[in-house]
């Protein structure tokens, strides 16, 4: 399997007001294969979005310091010039944002915005670019695309706008699509439609998708591989089947327990006790130890390394495999 994107020990720190650096993403490594979908899961503030912005090179170098390597189709993105990165963005790597209501410019028509993206990367006449934009709108199943083409964003619902964003992202046939919480702002039925669309487009275009979400349900729907992040670190990585069958990090177990199910009636939703640690004052040992029901002295003093528990399944937990705890 050749990989489209390889991220190796990517770290991102921001300078605080007092000049102290806070590391928000800590040595994150992963790969995405051609046509694969990788889900990145974690709570708000765990560094998911920052990771995606760092990959796209969209973090402001004045405030964020990035280290590590990001290799996209054999190109070392971190060493490329800004103008070369601009040529790649929107062309071979595209991004879909969380807020469809605000990610389209209110001053331009939907069609003009897609045409702009196409003409930025393809030497097409206005007419050809428009035809291609219309095709993109059709591809994402927007009803009466000829009409919608001339509409301003405010006339479209959230779901429609997200379809437009997806059409724009796909207009230049990217090899990698980074979708940052693409369904979070939408209601549940629309969520299902958008996920369906993403899945279909992946199958049609062969683009790799990096799907950022806090929702394990979404991951189970569309992803093949999962990366679980906690407090800026990767804590577990596995294929979707493996992760749901035998999670090997207490945090992942907690996340799964927090998904409400229709079948079992509980008086309260399950939660993970405590809250995400302050990134400026991290626990000495395992970052999850203050909230972990299995934590012992070793967990609290020594940060666990990431290690493989079975082929293709890695976890950052001293106690793994967790089955041994239950038995």
């Amino acid at each position: 399997m050749s990989s489209v994107l390889e991220v190796d020990e990517l770290s991102v720190s921001f300078a605080g007001e007092d000049g102290r650096m806070t590391t928000v993403v800590d040595k994150v490594s992963f790969k995405i294969g051609t046509g694969r979908t990788l889900g990145i899961v974690g709570e708000s503030g765990c560094g998911k979005s920052v990771t995606s912005l760092a990959i796209m090179g969209l973090l402001d170098p004045a405030s964020a310091s990035v280290s590590g390597t990001v290799t996209f189709e054999g190109i070392d993105l971190r060493r490329e010039s800004e103008s070369r990165l601009r040529d790649l963005r929107g062309d071979r790597m595209a991004m879909i944002f969380q807020e469809p209501m605000t990610s389209l410019n209110p001053s331009h028509t939907v069609g003009a915005q897609i045409v702009e993206a196409i003409q930025r990367h393809r030497a097409l006449s206005r007419k050809d670019a428009e035809a291609r934009a219309l095709e993109a709108l059709r591809q994402v199943s927007i009803p009466s695309p000829e009409t919608r083409f001339h509409d301003y964003p405010h006339r479209l619902s959230g779901g429609m706008r997200q379809r437009v964003m997806i059409a724009m992202a796909l207009s230049c046939d990217p090899k990698l699509v980074i979708a940052d919480e693409p369904t979070t702002a939408l209601d549940v039925t629309i969520q299902a439609q958008i996920l369906d669309l993403l899945r279909r487009l992946r199958d049609d275009t062969g683009a790799a998708i990096m799907l950022i979400t806090h929702d394990l349900g979404v991951v189970a729907e569309v992803c093949e591989d999962v990366l679980v992040m906690y407090a800026g670190e990767v804590v577990e990585r596995a294929s979707v089947g493996t992760l749901f069958r035998a999670p090997q990090h207490p945090y992942t177990v907690g996340l799964m327990g927090a998904i409400p199910r229709m079948a079992e009636r509980k008086p309260r939703l399950a939660t993970i006790e405590g809250s995400v640690p302050n990134m400026r004052a991290l626990p000495a040992g395992c970052r999850f130890s203050p909230r972990c029901p299995f934590a012992d002295a070793q967990c609290r003093t020594m940060p666990p390394p990431i290690r493989e528990v079975e082929a293709g399944h890695t976890t950052r937990c001293w106690k793994a495999p967790l089955e041994s705890l239950v038995a």
Binding site: M95, F97, N105, P106, E116
Partner: peptide
């Protein structure tokens, strides 16, 4: 700082 400006950067605009 609006998302649509971020989105405009993400499609490779100078």
């Amino acid at each position: 700082v609006e998302t649509y400006v971020e989105a405009a950067r993400a499609i490779g605009n100078p």
